[in-house]
Amino acid sequence: MGRYVARRLLQMIPVFIGTTLLIFLMVYALPGDPVRALFGDKGADPTTVARIRHDLGLDQPILKQYWDYMTGIILHFDFGNQIASGRPVRDVLGEAFPVTIRLASLAFAIELVVGIALGVWAGMRAGKLADSLVLIFTLLLISVPVFVLGFIFKLVFAFQLGWMTPNVQDDTNYSQLLMPAIVLAALSLAYVARLTRTSIAENLRADYMRTAVAKGLPRRRVIGVHLMRNSMIPVVTFLGTDIGALMGGAVVTEGLFNIHGVGGTIYESILRREGTTLVGLVTVLVLVFLFTSLLVDLLYAVLDPRIRYA
């Protein structure tokens, strides 16, 4: 097990370098010039532009820029400064990530509890009315785009019923974050529910379930221990990879509810050609993805003893 973890951690190094380099090159290839953009519509003095470019290191070859950037991150935990405001990117990240973590964990909790509950409910009654209802409901969630769902929620719960504020004013207030979290969770929730349902319905027919009943175990135990342990294996895999997606993929939801998290910051920095900010954000996200996938693989072995890593 220890050797497996060590090998996985070592494998992360090339993945990390590859992804960050790719992002760095893509940002470099974007049209537009952040320095020229500083001057707005006014024509900029070429010598001033050249000086700023030199100060920022933008006149260096691209691979040298990447090298300087990465050594800064790894050795000094320094993500550089934003070009327009001169703020350290580290501060920008420090502001954006807590907001996104709050939103993502709330969404994750909703997805986990509601998704699994719906899935178990439907799976136990496969082929009956309850099952069809859940399937139709989840199909609806999967097929409606996030921004449509977000607008419907805003319209109904904020403007018509007045239960919630339409936009998030205080992003440390969980009751304000609830509505965006539900919208964010909706899609994954549908997948979790369907995955759980299938898994439960399938394992319900397994031979070991018959054995468990024949042993005279109470129904609670047959379902809670024998059925759930087996049925949760695929669901846990999905939930694990979804953490990464929730952390980085909230661009639309954050924009809709005016939340200044990672998604919003990524969107802004793409618009403003803020390469350093963008690469910094994505670097952290890559790390989050790498670690959650490792965690999922380890958890997988814990849940299913037939899988052993050497």
């Binding site: 070991y208 042993k215 175990l217 342990r229």
Partner: peptide, 24 residues
Amino acid sequence: RKIRGRKIAMIFQDALSSLNPVLT
């Protein structure tokens, strides 16, 4: 349920699928 397992017990054909794979 109280009779099952305690007074009448059953042995199944395929022990691999009849035992729960994730429990010792």
